[in-house]
């Protein structure tokens, strides 16, 4: 009896996580969009996100990687980050989704992660900057991917064989996320000598 009640309890932690990370990602995308417009209207505009040669977003926005699909990347985030917010709010309201919905959601987030990994490599190895808003997008996309993927595995979305793996991995989502952050930090440090530049 108590088991069933736990199952049907609303996953409010997951919901809150989706809403917060989605909102942060959307806010970062929105800020980048505004900055992009500022640069387009006045090429020598002073952007709030430009702190130094290393920490800036102007160079990222002007790079070809910043509009890799022919339009500014932040527009993707402006649309995409609405999804986790919507799913989070729906979960809070007690919604239950079909398997295909979770799979589609997971595929979308995996795509976001793949895109973000590519952007990280371009920023560190080609553009040689750390762009504050971009980094906020990276840092929400990474845990979004792990939380949703592990949640889906545990919930049997990918079949019953993966539920065990999901259950085992669940407590490891935080360490995995931290490990991803640290990996990026180390790569950036090795390539850009961030610490010497900032301090």
């Amino acid at each position: 009896m108590s088991d069933t009640s736990t199952e049907t309890r609303r996953p409010w932690i997951l919901a809150a996580f989706l809403i917060v990370t989605g909102a942060l990602g959307w806010w970062a995308s929105f800020s980048l969009t505004i900055d992009k417009i500022a640069v387009l209207t006045a090429p020598d505009a002073v952007l709030d996100c430009n702190f130094s040669v290393l920490v800036q977003c102007g160079k990222n926005l002007e790079s070809w990687q910043g509009s890799v699909f022919g339009f500014p990347n932040p527009l993707i985030g402006l649309g995409g980050f609405v999804a986790p917010i919507a799913v989070g709010v729906a979960l809070l309201a007690g919604a239950r989704f079909a398997n295909w919905f979770w799979i589609a959601f997971n595929v979308g987030i995996a795509g976001a992660l793949a895109f973000v990994i590519w952007l990280i490599s371009q920023s560190i190895y080609s553009i040689n900057t750390l762009c504050p808003w971009c980094m906020l997008v990276w840092s929400v996309t990474i845990p979004l991917f792990w939380v949703v993927t592990v949640r889906n595995a545990k919930g049997g979305v990918f079949g019953s064989r993966l539920t065990r793996i999901g259950t085992v991995l669940e407590p490891w989502v935080l360490p995995i996320t931290v490990a991803c952050y640290l990996t990026i930090a180390v790569l950036a440090q090795v390539r850009l000598d961030v610490l010497r530049t900032i301090f």
Partner: peptide
């Protein structure tokens, strides 16, 4: 028990970093 090791290891890794 399931959450203890991952959480503690996260804290330790962050402290080292």
């Amino acid at each position: 028990r399931r959450w203890l090791i991952p959480t503690v290891s996260t804290v330790v890794v962050l402290a080292i970093a």
